[in-house]
Design a protein around this nucleic acid. Sequence first.
DNA 1: TGCAAATAATTAGTATAACAATTACTTTTG
DNA 2: CAAAAGTAATTGTTATACTAATTATTTGCA
Lengths: 149, 149
Amino acid sequence: MKIETSSKTKIEVPGFILERTAKRMKQYFQRALASADAGITIDQWVILQQLHIQDGLSQLHLAKATYKDAPTVTRIIDLLCKKDLTVRVPDEADRRRFKIQLTEGGKAKIEEVLPIVKKARTVAWNNLDDEQITQLEVTLNQIFDNLEF
Amino acid sequence: MKIETSSKTKIEVPGFILERTAKRMKQYFQRALASADAGITIDQWVILQQLHIQDGLSQLHLAKATYKDAPTVTRIIDLLCKKDLTVRVPDEADRRRFKIQLTEGGKAKIEEVLPIVKKARTVAWNNLDDEQITQLEVTLNQIFDNLEF
DNA sequence: TGCAAATAATTAGTATAACAATTACTTTTG
DNA sequence: CAAAAGTAATTGTTATACTAATTATTTGCA
């Protein structure tokens, strides 16, 4: 059976294209990590990378920085701690909080995974010039701002 | 505490921007459906909309058309059938398949939800001209093609 | 100061998504 | 034609996401 794909019938809206591209990108990075036996997911990587930029953030700060919500960050940190890549250090100044810190193993994991991620990026941005990437960012950020709640 | 956002430290890569924009867009459409008490999720809507374009598709055809995988489509169809928006009709030509068909209620749901989705789209594409949207699609499709497995 | 409101983290429930494996059926091919 | 390969749908497991509710703690204000 033929699946209709003509412009008359296919859901050819930019939102659909945006959704499917983001999905495939995530999947591609996920598979790159899996086939290198990195032992972490791409979302766990995003948290590790943020801690690499600024170690000791609270879970809520991590949530804001990565645009994930609090319960999701709780569970990702649970997994990262179980793998001994991070530790929850009680914040003496505010006993509701933890400072999430990279362990030595976490730092080593970042060094291990970074080349994999960088290689996947070169595949993703292949055939795109700088101007195109800049324009993409501008347009995506406009959409992002349009949808501020 | 300050969350670092300068270009030196923030994960300012196009992939991150793509991911967060797609996530916010999905969230925005999801909330639009929820606050209108549509009773379906955005992913269920995507399947309904595809059936509106071409009714009676098999689950695998739906999966290909919407870029979802087969187990996900199975579960979405389970939910849509439970809500009496679709029915699984055995395919007499191939007894492994079902034809997924919209019920009258499903067709009514599409008419009910379409204005909500259209309104959300106008918000999302606000401040973007046609040329920008066209360029966005071109660039996203290039990335999509780059990541073909 | 004391109490209400806000905040940080967690837990529970539902939905989506990827992957692997299984079952049932169909097609290919030796 | 029968066995092997392929296909359609399902099931199970793990992970992410959103909502809502809960607990513990801190802040704000009367």
